[in-house]
Simulated scan of single mutants.
Amino acid sequence: MSGTPDLGPLPQRVTVGTGQVRRLVGDQFPQWAGLPVRPVSESGWDNFTFHLGDAMVARLPSAAEYALAVEKEQRWLPVLAPRLPLPVPVPLGQGRPGAGYPFSWSIYAWLAGSPARADRIADPVRFALDLAEFLAALRSIDTDGGPQPGKHNWFRGATPRTYDAQTRRALTALDGDIDVGLAREIWETALDARWDGMDVWFHGDLAPGNLLLDDGDLAAVIDFGTCGVGDPSCDLAIAWTLLTTDGRQAFRERLSIDEPTWARGRGWALWKALVTCARGGEEAADARRVLDGILTDYLSGK
């Protein structure tokens, strides 16, 4: 669900250059001042990411809205990391505004791997099971004091109803292009599916770009900017955005996902697909593929 923000207009993004990052590191982390700085080849929307030497990265939020996650990641990733079966980013330092850059930022250890993509995954069912094992471990961690849904994570972990108005605008925009009646039924099923109210940890943005592969296998999970505690159904959207039909079934069975939770997860995937289709642009074709899969699954009772 990553790539662009989810509520209202796009945040006002800043620009960050290599020289600027070099000055920030030199001023605030003199022990690393001599290390080369270069942009990461596949940086995301929410953060600018730069290699710092060969073993670290500097990660700088691109807008004030994304900077809200810095303190949370600094606080909670060291707690979560030892309890998870796959590597996740662990902060090595927290930077402050400077050198013309206005937000807090972080230095992390570099996690190698290539972003997940369907044609890069060696065994789709094994990948789905490995991802489910990761989520099962994440959900088992004590939630005491954990961050509740809010602006820091675009209200992941809250009810899908947060996005009801946005979803209905997208349905109106797509009328005549898709089966709006069926899509509306799926959305309303998600809204009606009750959550038991028991908080668990969730990642919040299990997009392909945040799942790293090594030789076709799931090797690491990155970007916890939208993590928190609450309803974990937001993490189920990946079942439709990346997993195969067989992988989706294995994923659901391993996590023992009941029908209401599955319906809410499907709603999260539907919301993002509808909004992306309505927005148009380069991502619309892939969103249409996801949307077609959701509609087909629903009609077949899956």
Rank of each mutant, 00 (worst) to 15 (best):
G44Y: 02
Y298G: 06
D144V: 04
F155M: 10
L295M: 10
P78V: 03
A118K: 04
Q12E: 14
D297Y: 00
F127L: 10
G98R: 12
G17T: 15
D231V: 08
A118N: 05
V37F: 01
D177S: 07
L213M: 01
R156K: 07
R289G: 06
P115A: 14
T241G: 05
G8V: 15
N210I: 11
R75N: 03
R266D: 12
T4Q: 14
E73G: 05
Q249A: 04
W262Q: 05
L10Q: 15
N210M: 09
G209F: 07
Y66G: 02
R75F: 10
V16G: 04
G280W: 10
A81H: 10
P61Y: 12
D46T: 05
W271Q: 04
P97Q: 00
D192E: 12
L111M: 08
A109V: 09
A67K: 06
V40I: 13
G209C: 09
F127S: 00
Q74R: 05
T4A: 13
I141L: 14
P30E: 07
R254G: 08
G225H: 07
T245G: 00
S300V: 00
I257N: 03
R168S: 09
C227N: 07
A273V: 04
P5M: 12
F224H: 02
T226S: 09
L129F: 00
I238R: 02
Q28M: 03
R161E: 14
A64N: 05
G228I: 02
T261W: 09
D231A: 04
G197C: 06
G301L: 11
S114R: 14
L211Y: 06
G19H: 12
S104Y: 08
E253S: 12
R279I: 06
R23F: 03
D164H: 15
P149I: 05
L191F: 00
W195P: 11
D246L: 08
R264E: 02
P30N: 06
D217E: 14
W45V: 04
E185S: 12
F48H: 13
T172D: 15
E73F: 04
N210C: 14
Y101V: 09
R120N: 02
G19W: 04
P9F: 10
W32G: 01
L111P: 13
G293T: 00
I222P: 04
R248A: 13
I257H: 03
R169E: 13
F251V: 01
I294P: 01
R75M: 12
T276Y: 07
P78M: 01
D231T: 11
D231L: 15
R156N: 06
T189Y: 00
D130R: 15
A137T: 08
G113E: 05
H152N: 02
P147Y: 03
G150N: 06
W271K: 12
A269Y: 13
G8W: 03
C277T: 10
A263G: 04
L24I: 05
P260C: 09
W268L: 13
A63I: 11
G100K: 07
L138C: 00
Q74K: 05
G181R: 07
S256K: 10
A137V: 05
S62E: 06
L52Y: 05
T172W: 07
A287W: 01
L274R: 02
V88R: 08
